[in-house]
């Protein structure tokens, strides 16, 4: 009941009229999750993954906007041997919720800074994910490029990069004592419906 009232208040308020939504579709590359050596050295990392996000933005005092975003990407997580061979470990989806601020840096460029929580969702509780998928705090920076010809259609190019520290309970049991910094880079197209004149 309380939630219904809250939603009703929100959608009938002046603020709701100013909320804009944008969607993003692109590809994401991740740095190494684990580096280990058993006889020979190898790395574990997610394959290049399709990435999608939905962002809601609300204007604050100019030039700032508050944003909330839901981001998801999905691919195999693989062992990459020094010999060049790869072996899939399991399928992995990552989902993230962020809150942040964005502002226009140039007429054609918007920058955003976001913080939130990132959840690893392996398809099987197996190997380094045998105790399930962990949560990590993470930070993300994003840049949206919208040249005039694309902005007319609400389109833009987005590059975003995020960072978190990765470890799992199974890796701790295995003898890893510290989490590993992981950087992820995504690039793709964003679309803001109704933003064009």
């Amino acid at each position: 009941m309380f939630r219904t009232i809250l939603l009703a208040c929100f959608f009938t308020s002046p603020a709701a009229a100013q909320v804009s939504f944008s969607v993003f579709a692109g590809v994401r590359r991740s740095s190494v999750l684990v580096h280990d050596q058993i006889v020979t050295a190898f790395d574990v990392r997610p394959a290049v993954a399709p990435a999608f996000s939905v962002t809601a933005g609300m204007p604050l005092d100019l030039p700032w906007r508050a944003t909330a975003a839901f981001d998801v990407s999905t691919s195999d997580v693989r062992r990459e041997d020094a010999t060049g061979g790869t072996q899939s470990i399991t399928h992995l989806t990552t989902a993230a919720l962020t809150l942040g601020l964005s502002r226009s840096l140039k007429p054609w460029l918007t920058g955003s800074l976001r913080v939130g929580a990132l959840k690893y969702l392996p398809s099987q509780n197996l190997g380094l994910f045998q105790d399930g998928g962990p949560f990590f705090p993470f930070a993300q920076v994003a840049f949206d490029f919208a040249p005039t010809f694309a902005a007319e259609h609400g389109l833009g190019l987005q590059i975003n990069a995020d960072a978190h520290k990765f470890i799992t309970d199974a890796l701790r049991v295995e003898g890893f004592s510290e989490s590993r910094p992981v950087l992820r880079l995504a690039a793709g197209v964003s679309w803001t419906p109704g933003s064009h004149p």
């Binding site: 280990d36 062992r79 072996q87 197996l126 190997g127 380094l128 045998q130 890796l171």
Partner: peptide, 11 residues
């Protein structure tokens, strides 16, 4: 035995 492996070596 699967639980002894970390990196998909055996299923």
């Amino acid at each position: 035995w699967q639980d002894q492996f970390m990196y998909g070596e055996f299923t």
